[in-house]
Design a binder for these strands. Structure first.
Lengths: 146, 146
DNA sequence: TTGACTTGGTTGCAATCGCAACTAATTATT
DNA sequence: AATAATTAGTTGCGATTGCAACCAAGTCAA
């Protein structure tokens, strides 16, 4: 049985493993949104947030996704430039803007969402269906840790 | 009980979860090598590889770590500039260079390795000790997947 | 051998990132 | 009300990245 080594072991270092897994699983899908819509990863995520949860402010996206606000800001600008999303002034807060997808943005989300779901299924297939639920839970715990 | 949703769910999208977990777990440790040695993440990884596995060529590091060769090349240059590692011509291949840590590099590795190990232990503590072994296995499977 | 092809490693360049500084609007303090 | 402290979002800039092009050494094939 494998046990924790006495010396530091890079290849069992959790941040390292997670980075590699994240990189490996993201890269395949990256080609999809890059080739079809010229999007960056952050743009795809912002689109997905708005597509899934509906209109919200940039601040909300930051809070939900833990993406840096400058990244969100630039992704929003790019998506707006591509006609994927529109900004509306918030009636309650003069600083904030309500972001929502345009028809074009919704169409992109519909297509990419389906492809993403398919990708997710094959990934979960490689770890096994029961284990995959456990995996989610562990990842969430790490994300929400101190 | 939670089941797979019909519609695409960003927050259960594995690449997304993995990215967040990787980001969250890496960020805390990043402060360590950045503040103490002014290293980037890639530099730290290259150092760790050499520290753990001994002298090898840049090519070997790429193969082992799946880091892009240009990233490795630049990290090696930076580490060399900081006196952390030295290059020696390979006797077998005139193109390749054997990379090895200097005393200073080994000292840095010793310190950072210990701190990394401690960080890893607290991370694994948050997911539970038995689960953490399963986690490793799943991550490795995702990394090595097609 | 000579020339085509591969491979280890570096470099140029455009794009992206992270952080700090900034503007403008809101809230808190007195 | 006036001013200080926060907050939403943007921007400037240096550092990092990714990709393609490149150089030099090694391998292959005729």
């Amino acid at each position: 049985m494998t046990r924790a080594p006495d010396r530091f072991d890079l290849e069992s270092f959790l941040p390292y493993l997670l980075n590699q897994a994240a990189e490996a699983t993201s890269r395949a899908f990256q080609a999809v949104y890059r080739d079809r819509y010229g999007m960056t990863r952050t743009q795809w995520r912002v689109l997905a947030h708005l597509g899934q949860f509906g209109a919200m402010t940039a601040r909300d996206i930051c809070a939900r996704s833990h993406i840096e606000k400058t990244k969100v800001s630039r992704a929003v600008a790019a998506l707006e430039g591509d006609g994927m999303l529109a900004r509306a002034p918030s009636p309650e807060d003069g600083r904030a803007e309500i972001l929502s997808l345009t028809a074009r943005g919704r169409a992109a989300y519909a297509e990419l969402g389906n492809l993403a779901q398919a990708h997710d299924r094959t990934l979960r297939g490689t770890v096994g269906p029961e284990a995959s639920a456990k995996l989610d839970e562990m990842l969430r715990r790490l994300i929400d840790a101190p």
